[in-house]
Amino acid sequence: MSINVVRKDKEVNISISGRFDFSMNNEFRKILSAPSEVGEQFSIDMGAVEDLDSSALGMLLLLREKAGGDTANIKIQKCREDIIEMLKMANFQTMFDIS
């Protein structure tokens, strides 16, 4: 259960492991409260995520709002099949680049 953020110019690489839920709230807030830059690109590695709940989805939506809403450029990568199912069920495939 950890979150790791690496910034490189306008690219922000976030890698999450374990259960993605409200306990990551504080860590995630740091990303959200960091100053926004125009054209920022977020890439979230969820390869090690075992499970997620609705607060995780809420946090991802807040990140999308921060990154510009409909113009946001966020990739969610390396998801497990069941995680992809859950994201699709919440219609996230229309808002994020899921793979």
């Binding site: 609705s54 989805l57 809420g58 946090m59 807040l62 919440a90 219609n91």
Partner: peptide, 23 residues
């Protein structure tokens, strides 16, 4: 069902936002 899920996710989003405000 979709509306239900959307509502849950949005509630979570606003709750997280509320938590940040409370913080």
């Amino acid at each position: 069902m979709n509306y239900f899920i959307e509502t849950i996710v949005n509630t979570s989003k606003e709750s997280v936002r509320l938590v940040y405000k409370l913080d």
